[in-house]
Design a protein around this nucleic acid. Structure first.
Lengths: 248, 248
DNA sequence: CGCGGAGTTGAACGCATTCAAGTCTTGTGG
DNA sequence: CCACAAGACTTGAATGCGTTCAACTCCGCG
């Protein structure tokens, strides 16, 4: 059941067990299928057990902008619980495994486990904090720093949850997807990735992001993980990774 | 007490009254003073009664990026309640009037008024939705559309809450501030504003945004207010404003 | 009167896009 | 098994949007 990856930074083992009990069975969806359509009424919330999903909106001419990327252990549409619909679409990026929680069950959490209910709220607040970081990145960082910053974010989030080692991580995004994350074109992403490769900072090969120089990556990307609100022992582990005090 | 502007889209009159009772007395802060510093432990949450405040983070060289702008009636740091600190700074943009709610009182809301507690969560979810819209805008829209989109957002949010008429609104932002909102330079903002003026779409004069052609503004900015999750009667009023069916 | 901040404008530069052509891989069907 | 189509990646060249640098005006304020 992979309880250990269900926001270990947030839930006790009992709470994770309880939440897991509310969830429906795991459902696997194929890569590149839509999971949620914007403005569609929903009656259940989704949890990502395995894989990655991307949240995005499109402009008038159909060009896509990702507004969030979720990793295993994420509740990625809690917003629907209280808003009824999502303002954006959600797609599976690789093959993904999901589990659902009915809104009624979340109401039961509210009435019977207020503390746990608060923790769900807290998760959505961290989600919002990540959004703010994306605004900062997209608005203030130049191309190369922007890309590096994003790669550092995914590196950190996956590592913090024990989903990758210091050597790098799996990222089921094409260069075009990366462009739609960072607000640039795929041609430009291609050239920036080459620079990062020649700088011996990181290399993407067959969907694997190989982080050769974490220190340079976070320095170039001006990355700082404070916005993730990591639990302190995890934050320390991450700091070791990012500051190069550990192996790299 | 201005209860009517306290999220009329969310709270009943009783609820607004109750929440107001939890708040401390109004505090007025001068323009351009810092209200919250990032990463500082907090024990109360803030509500904006009058004026505007801006949330921002700075890059390594000190250049600022706004990640949110709040208008009267906004609870703008609910995140601190469950996270303890904010990941960003908050400044008053004009003179602003604030009211505080102690975290302990929010805990009481949780235990005694679960439905109302959910509504506070809901507010923070709309806040996150606005963040996503900012990501979209900053990442996907070209300069002129980006600026128009932002001006349309503030127009809509203020109008929806009855804080401005169709003719326009007060915006205590310099061209440099606008640049820090939209992720561009103040020189460029200056040129784009001139274009908007010559196009007879909107004119900024002495801190007043005069919206001369709402329809063109939202069209140019590819603006759509769905992300605000407005209550239906308010949404209809806004639609009239933005579609030009109403007076302009 | 002089200072400083906000706004304005010109000119040069450069980052990023656009357009285009090519390679390579993968999957599909003949 | 090979031909072919489709998608991802790569690279070059030209264009242009937005930045940078700089100068100047306007205005409020000490």
């Amino acid at each position: 059941m992979l309880l250990d990856r269900a926001y270990p930074e947030t839930f006790t083992h009992q709470e994770a067990l309880f939440l897991s009990g509310l969830q429906g069975p795991p459902q696997t969806v194929r890569s590149r299928t839509r999971i949620v359509r914007a403005h569609t009424m929903l009656d259940r919330s989704l949890y990502l057990e395995e894989g990655m999903v991307g949240r995005y909106t499109c402009d008038r001419s159909g060009r896509r902008q990702f507004v969030g990327l979720q990793i295993p252990g994420d509740y990625f549409d809690l917003a629907a619980y209280l808003l009824g619909t999502l303002d954006h679409d959600v797609d599976a990026l690789g093959e993904a495994t999901l589990r659902e929680t009915a809104f009624e069950d979340l109401n039961r959490v509210r009435d019977e486990h207020p503390e746990l209910y608060s923790k769900l709220w807290r998760i959505s607040l961290i989600d919002a904090s990540v959004h703010r970081y994306w605004i900062f990145r997209t608005g203030r960082l130049a191309g190369k720093a922007r890309l590096a910053n994003f790669l550092a974010e995914m590196y950190t989030r996956l590592y913090a949850r024990g989903l990758c080692g210091p050597e790098g991580y799996r990222l089921p995004l094409s260069q075009n997807d990366l462009a739609e994350v960072c607000g640039m074109t795929s041609v430009h992403v291609n050239r920036l990735l080459r620079e990062l490769r020649l700088d011996r900072i990181c290399t993407i090969l067959d969907g694997m992001v190989q982080v050769e120089n974490p220190v340079a990556l976070i320095r170039l990307g001006q990355f700082s993980p404070a916005f993730l609100y990591l639990e302190s022992t995890i934050a320390e582990r991450v700091a070791l990774l990012l500051n190069g005090t550990a192996e790299g």
